[in-house]
Simulated scan of single mutants.
Amino acid sequence: MATLRGLREVPRHLLVCEKSNFGHDKSRHRHLVETHYHNYRVSFLIPECGILSKELKNLVMETGPYYFVKNLPVYELITHKFINTFVKKGLCSALSYNTNIDEDNTAALLPNGKLILSLDKDTYEETGLQGRPSHYSGRRVMKFVISIDLMDLSCKPDSKKYERISWSFKEKKQLKFDFLLAWHHPGVEKSVMMSHFSSYGIQEHQPKIATSTVSDLQCPVLQSNELRGRPEASCSASELLDWLGAIFSHAELNNEPNNFISTYCCPQPSTVLAKAYLCTITGFILPEKICLLLEQLWYGHYFDEPKLAPWVTLTVQGFSDSPVSWRENEHGFHKGGEHLYNFVIFNNQDYWLQMAVGANDDCPP
């Protein structure tokens, strides 16, 4: 009986869906993109499109660079030189690499200047810094979260608080991580970060880009005013998200009886697209780059003749082991570590926004 009960238990997940219009004064699209900080994959689908516009193609090729720094001490992220050069001048983001949020110590720098550390109990106590228990520790608290405001520290460079934090990371507990870093500051040479961390063997990387054109693609029918969907009129937002996952995973959608890998089929009602353009960008992608992609999809004339796309989608997935999901909301792994969002953009500037998180997360904002 216990085994049967276990099979029936499905991990909780949250999917928040909302509808708005890019032209509305209270539209939250930019805020939601800008506060989902650590993104590793961006995918878009454009129906009735075989070739990207020059503008969109250029944006896709310019989503990088990002950087990998091996064995970087956390202390280096709180020095006045780093704060003044990168945190105060532009938008800097960092995330510890190859660390598991549920097992290891992890660290993240947010573009708003907050340094977030998720530490095991022993490491937390060794630092001597003040934090709070993780929301997802269970009865026996084994993980703690420390948040340090670097902008506040920079305003008081000679304060006792700065001295205590500096001493903790430099002498008391020398935490080191492999980091992914990215910095957005238009007009500044990209080599600045390379030279700043040259003693740590910094490497520059460009995101990986995969594109394809699919012919005769069966896709669900969508109506912008039918967010919840009606079986006879429109696919729902949640059904669409499942379908997109199948499309970008290159799963079979024909539900053939001898297919033992996938029995999934397209939601109804459906139609067949003559062609559709798929693009996936994988790396360490800043929210500002995603804002530009979203704007280009919105304004990119894909709804004009002769293409006449009924809608386009933009899907963004966050790092499963990031300490945060949106803003400073604590993120945990549990079963899958998912936190993602998807825009469905219609030709009248309406859009659906879908935000999904797993069991160890607060409700999306």
Rank of each mutant, 00 (worst) to 15 (best):
T282D: 12
L15V: 15
A274I: 01
I345G: 06
Y37P: 04
P310T: 03
Q218G: 05
V10Q: 13
T127S: 00
K173V: 01
R228C: 14
F177R: 13
L244M: 12
T127A: 00
M61L: 10
Q317R: 14
I247L: 14
L175W: 08
L244Q: 07
N112Y: 00
N255P: 09
R30P: 00
C219P: 02
S212D: 11
T263V: 09
K114F: 10
N21C: 15
P269K: 05
N258G: 01
K88G: 00
R41H: 07
G300A: 01
K54G: 06
D178F: 13
C266Q: 02
C266N: 03
F179G: 00
P207I: 01
I146T: 10
K190Y: 00
D102R: 05
Y97C: 11
W311Y: 15
S53D: 12
L150Y: 02
G113Q: 07
D149K: 09
P207K: 07
Q206S: 14
K160S: 08
S168L: 00
V141C: 10
S270V: 02
H36P: 06
G6M: 11
K156Q: 11
N347Q: 13
Q218R: 10
N98K: 07
G23M: 08
R139P: 04
F44Q: 02
E34V: 06
E330D: 01
N21E: 14
C266H: 03
C17G: 08
L129Y: 03
M193K: 00
S195L: 12
F144R: 02
K335Q: 10
H301N: 06
K170G: 03
C219D: 00
K275D: 01
N84H: 07
T213W: 14
H334W: 09
H185I: 04
S320E: 13
N71Q: 15
D104H: 13
M151F: 07
L119Q: 01
D350K: 00
P257F: 02
F44A: 01
K275N: 05
N58D: 12
L56Q: 06
V33L: 02
E252M: 03
N105D: 05
L119I: 05
F169H: 11
V87D: 09
S96A: 14
K307G: 04
V192H: 01
G138M: 05
K57V: 03
L314H: 06
E226I: 05
Y75P: 06
E55G: 02
R132D: 08
G6F: 09
G23I: 01
N259V: 04
Q268L: 07
A276C: 08
V312F: 08
G187I: 00
R230C: 12
S215W: 09
E226A: 10
H13E: 13
E76V: 02
T63L: 10
L222W: 12
L217K: 07
I116V: 15
N225Y: 11
E62Q: 06
K160L: 10
P220T: 12
S137N: 06
E9Q: 15
E328S: 14
Q296N: 06
E18I: 00
M151W: 03
E18T: 06
S134W: 08
I290L: 02
E226W: 04
Y200N: 12
C266L: 07
N348H: 15
